[in-house]
Amino acid sequence: MMRDLHALLTPRHALGPLEIRRENLAFVTLPASNLRGFLTELRDTQGFSHLVLLTAVDWLEEGQFQLTYMMNNRARDLTLGVRVMLDRTTAQMDSIHDLWPTAATYQRELKEMFGITFPGSPRLDEEFILEGWTDLPPYRRDFDSLAYSQQTYAERPGRVTHDPREYMKSKLYPGG
């Protein structure tokens, strides 16, 4: 079923290879400029009307952000993960808030947590979860949360920290 859909839509939207995870879940990558047209066609003609989630993955080593738009067709029980790769330095993408109003919330969070901008998305620059944040967007891989907490917060005197790996090793694999 997914293969038929992929074959049908590839010529119009320059889709990459279909990666089938299981019978009702697959992933596909396409150029960022084709995303809005592809999602609109998925929604209006293929029954993928439910935007399940929109999130980002930071591939720091490859200099790219991956945006994943999880689309669901409830009647046919199909979920398609639509992937778009963005250059990490520009980190900008077309907004889809006019297709799904709820996308504005996801885009607002992505702006705050990953620093990815979606020009035209409502209330994009309003604080969502963080307050007065001036550091790197914290969900980027180059933001070191451990170093941040060590610099920002004082340790309680007398606190003892055990290495969880050593502890687990002694409990789970006492023989070594």
Partner: peptide
């Protein structure tokens, strides 16, 4: 390397985990 999405019906609706 891989990615998947697992969902279920919790008391409030669709709950899911996207793991990469």
């Amino acid at each position: 390397r891989g990615e998947t999405y697992i969902k279920g019906e919790c008391s409030r609706g669709e709950y899911g985990y996207y793991l990469v």
